[in-house]
Nucleic acid binder design. Structure first.
Lengths: 186, 186
DNA sequence: CTCCTGTGGCTAAGGTTGTTAGCCATACGC
DNA sequence: GCGTATGGCTAACAACCTTAGCCACAGGAG
């Protein structure tokens, strides 16, 4: 019987893919193991239980989201940058609902937790958007929280099916980006 | 052995209180039953399983939130109304994290689901805020979604401990309300 | 007052899932 | 080529949700 060639990253990637398919709460050790061609106790050789698995998926997701944001912001500034970032986040949440869900409700454990670094990279991208506007440095942290809250809230509500008239959601999204752009330009 | 005097509402109220204390995911049938002085199978005489329990907690929470909003908006308009509503939502989410968490990720089952009515009442309150501004009727739905996304995102991030410098969160909140007020005034 | 019925408790039991313990074979370093 | 750590496995346990089926109490009918 050949070995399956697993390691923590492969397991986390499998969990992320599975979460996108069946929803994060339905990612079970047994199901993931089956998907990886292995029995569930074997996963514990690579991952320290379900909580650790969620943590790793969160790191993976935030890293991917950070990459997507960085790509989207290349060579853009001001309103273009804002729109591109918003679209990137929304697109990520829609295309990878399981991964995105994992980014909520996770705690940083150690001071050198890679989750903190991945999160910081995402924040850096959002801060780069603000650089294109004339925001009072004292208000930067507030504006950052505005962007986070708004994008995150929109993503969560859309993922949960919280908006009724599904057809208008795209319109609402662009309207919302415009609203923020106007507000940030003062 | 005297009867415990339970009914669906009492069970849901107990679940809500328990959720606020230990977190919604940690509300287990056994724990709730113990809290109510009963064994877990007895709960099934009043409630149709854990999913139904979550549903009922969501209805209860949305109803309470709707009441809080209605109270907060009494006799206020424009920026005062906006600030009062925002504070009410945030206060509710902070004071009742378990209840608030239950309002996310719930589905309306029947057309006469009380959840839909409770949610509609909350939306009505938000719509009432917009009445105090000069919003193009065609944009009302977008502005509503702005408010929902922003308030909800802020509440989720704050509840998840997503903001680092905890001391500035109040400042960010008022800054954010001002930002929206300015934007809505055009 | 007595009986009858339905409601709301209970114990017992089964299925699923997370997790640990302990075994054994494989792949790699010397 | 051999030893050793690694990465599979089976077995087993605990927690939880849920169902089945029993029994006692409460309240109304006669």
């Amino acid at each position: 019987m050949p070995r399956a060639g697993l390691d923590p990253d492969v397991v986390a990637a499998g969990a992320a893919a599975l979460a996108d398919e069946v929803g994060l709460p339905n990612v079970t050790m047994g199901l993931l193991a089956e998907r990886l061609g292995v029995r569930s106790p074997s996963l514990y050789k690579h991952v320290d239980g379900l909580a650790d698995l969620h943590h790793r998926v969160a790191v993976l997701a935030l890293t991917e989201l950070g990459d997507a944001l960085r790509d989207a912001l290349q060579g853009r500034a001001g309103r273009d940058a804002l729109a591109a970032a918003a679209t990137a986040i929304r697109g990520f949440a829609v295309a990878h609902p399981g991964r995105y869900a994992a980014t909520v409700r996770v705690d940083v454990h150690a001071p050198d937790d890679p989750l903190a670094a991945a999160g910081a990279r995402v924040l850096d991208s959002l801060a780069a958007i603000l650089a294109g506007y004339d925001v009072d440095p004292a208000d930067t942290v507030h504006a950052l929280r505005l962007l986070r809250s708004l994008f995150h809230g929109f993503a969560v509500l859309e993922a949960a099916g919280g908006f009724q008239l599904a057809t208008d959601v795209d319109d609402s999204f662009t309207w919302l980006v415009e609203f923020v752009d106007r507000g940030l330009r003062g």
